[in-house]
């Protein structure tokens, strides 16, 4: 019962904190770029505004266009269940509904539908976004799998809860594979969540955009769902980065004190990563579209190096 409660709290936290995290990153970026920041809770207002607005659907759209936002949102919630946020030793950990491969697969499912939705309306913008999204994902997704395989082979489990448990319990050693894996996963995070240098989340209506081009025709509650799930996805990736490579402070038993420490530590780590993300984004320029594959193939190579250095050096 207690574990179920914690699972539910965890999912609610993913839902509640993800806009805040985005607001924090936006604030920091503004401050770093000498602009006046919006309120940190502005993303919440945006979501509420969008949900209240009437939805407009293009004439050519089929049911796929209307179904995609719901699917993306549900997938994000399921991802929230699968990724340990602040506690790991839950009994439910042994009966997970899915492991890391399922997590990546679910994100791929959501993306598949989003890409179809982009092509559904039959405009050039939608197709452009879809085509580019597929380019990025076709290299970023296998890289993500490879990073997670490296960790899974270290912990001999693909269950995220058990991977983190293994990493906490084993004494700290600086493994070469982890250095590569961390770099790889950080670069994947930038690519998968549409941040600079791959995609610019701040632009609308530019020929360089990817994610925004696909969802150009969305409005109202559909747009709210898509933006919210994008925020959750960003949070999921940052949680993965922080909890796998810096698993300190995460609650390993179910007492109130350790849970609250775990929660606090997770939030601090997330906000720390938000700061790093804001700094990198401010310092980097967006890559040209055809430069993006170089970035992504370096990522793929790093991830392959991670798994190979693991099997060669660490077994």
């Amino acid at each position: 019962m207690k574990t179920l409660l914690i699972e539910i709290i965890q999912v609610l936290l993913f839902l509640a904190l993800s806009p805040l995290l985005l607001g924090w990153i936006k604030c920091l970026k503004c401050l770093l770029q000498n602009r006046r920041p919006p309120s940190i809770i502005q993303p919440y207002f945006n979501l509420i505004k969008l949900i209240r607005k009437q939805t407009i659907v293009p004439c050519e759209a089929s049911w796929i266009f209307r179904f995609t936002p719901y699917l993306m949102f549900s997938v994000s919630i399921l991802a929230g269940i699968m990724v340990p946020l602040f506690a790991i030793n839950l009994p439910i950990a042994y009966m997970q509904i899915g492991d890391v491969i399922v997590l990546i697969g679910l994100f791929a499912l959501a993306r598949f539908f989003l890409v179809l939705a982009g092509m559904d309306i039959g405009t050039a913008f939608g197709g452009m976004g879809s085509s580019r999204e597929m380019l990025i994902s076709s290299l970023a997704e296998p890289s993500a799998l490879l990073v997670l395989f490296t960790l899974a082979m270290t912990a001999s489990s693909t269950n995220l809860y058990l991977i983190i448990k293994h990493l906490i319990e084993s004494s700290f050693v600086l493994r070469p594979s982890f250095v590569f894996a961390f770099l790889g996963l950080a670069m994947i995070t930038l690519a998968e969540t549409g941040r600079i240098p791959i995609d610019n989340p701040a632009t609308h209506l530019e020929l360089t955009m990817t994610h925004e081009a696909m969802i150009l025709e969305y409005s109202g509650r559909y747009l709210a769902l898509i933006e919210w799930s994008a925020q959750i996805k960003l949070m999921v990736y940052l949680v993965l980065l922080s909890n796998i490579f810096f698993p300190w402070g995460i609650a390993t038993n179910l007492t109130l004190s350790s849970l609250s420490i775990g929660l606090l530590a997770t939030i601090l780590k997330l906000f720390g990563f938000g700061l790093i993300l804001a700094i990198t984004e401010t310092n980097l320029a967006k890559l040209r579209l055809f430069r993006a594959p170089y970035f992504l193939s370096i990522t793929f190579m790093l991830c392959l190096l991670a798994i190979l250095s693991h099997v060669i050096l660490e077994i």
Partner: peptide, 27 residues
Amino acid sequence: IAAAVLALTGALAAACFAKVYGVAFLG
């Protein structure tokens, strides 16, 4: 390495069939 190839193949297959469905049935 074979697993990496399999992962890459899966991602490219998604791209391929997004193309098929998007171009043939949508728009």
